[in-house]
């Protein structure tokens, strides 16, 4: 093992994480949650069209590989005249993907809030939307923290796929250094180590947040 290479490549890789992996994950997650919220609300809607569209969306996202989704957007869309740079392509693909998975989590969380909470909201005079927004979603949010954190952790790892559409993130830096130095084992293990540390930090944070939120959930 070449420890000099380990240390000298650590800087660029961390930079790849800080300038690529982390912002890509954060941006995609935030946008993905927004999409998920819309899809989840569509899915529980009594409007058949809305719930049908929501169901189809989830089915397509979960039924096709993320890599294929990414390639359709980056390499496929130009065929119909939509040419996107690597970064926007990656953010769109990842947020659409997170949107599909997180929609199911949020929907399940909404359905897990006891029916009495809807009724209490109506009893004090709230409309369906008001009850959803002020009573149900805050409670659903607490229930969805653990599964959503898992989605986020998966997303962080999945962003390595963005290297395949030329986004400069952690794994692409590793690939570049490896191609140049031929030290594949060292550099890919080093990349793995950095992903692992990031995920460790995230799951520690997750445990803490869960403990704090646990108590406000209805019986």
């Amino acid at each position: 093992m070449d420890f000099n290479l380990f240390w000298s490549s650590l800087g660029p890789m961390l930079l790849g994480a800080i300038k690529g992996t982390i912002p890509l994950s954060l941006a995609s997650f935030v946008l993905g949650l927004l999409i998920a919220l819309i899809i989840a609300v569509m899915r529980i809607s009594s409007n058949k069209l809305a719930s049908g569209v929501g169901r189809a969306y989830v089915s397509i996202i979960r039924g096709t590989p993320l890599l294929v989704q990414l390639f359709v957007i980056f390499y496929g869309l130009p065929a119909i005249g939509v040419k996107l740079d690597p970064w926007p392509s990656a953010i769109i693909a990842f947020s659409l993907n997170v949107g599909g998975y997180a929609a199911e989590i949020i929907r399940a969380a909404i359905l897990s809030v006891p029916r009495g909470q809807w009724e209490a909201g109506h009893m004090i005079g709230m409309s369906r939307n008001q009850t959803l927004l002020r009573i149900i979603l805050p409670q659903a949010a607490r229930v969805s923290v653990p599964p959503l954190s898992n989605t986020f952790i998966s997303l962080v790892k999945d962003t390595s796929l963005a290297s395949l559409i030329l986004v400069t993130e952690l794994f692409r830096v590793a690939q570049q250094v490896a191609a140049f130095s031929r030290e594949f084992m060292l550099l890919y293990l080093e990349a793995a180590l950095i992903y692992w540390v990031i995920c460790l930090v995230l799951s520690t944070a997750q445990t803490r947040v869960e403990k704090r939120l646990d108590r406000y959930v209805a019986h």
Binding site: G116, Q117, E119, A120, M123, I124, I135, P138, R142, Y216
Partner: peptide, 17 residues
């Protein structure tokens, strides 16, 4: 109609958050 009455539930149904 609902605006004119208020209900107390068997299982309280307070807002836990």
């Amino acid at each position: 109609l609902r605006d004119r009455s208020a209900m107390v539930f068997q299982h309280y149904n307070l807002f836990p958050h």
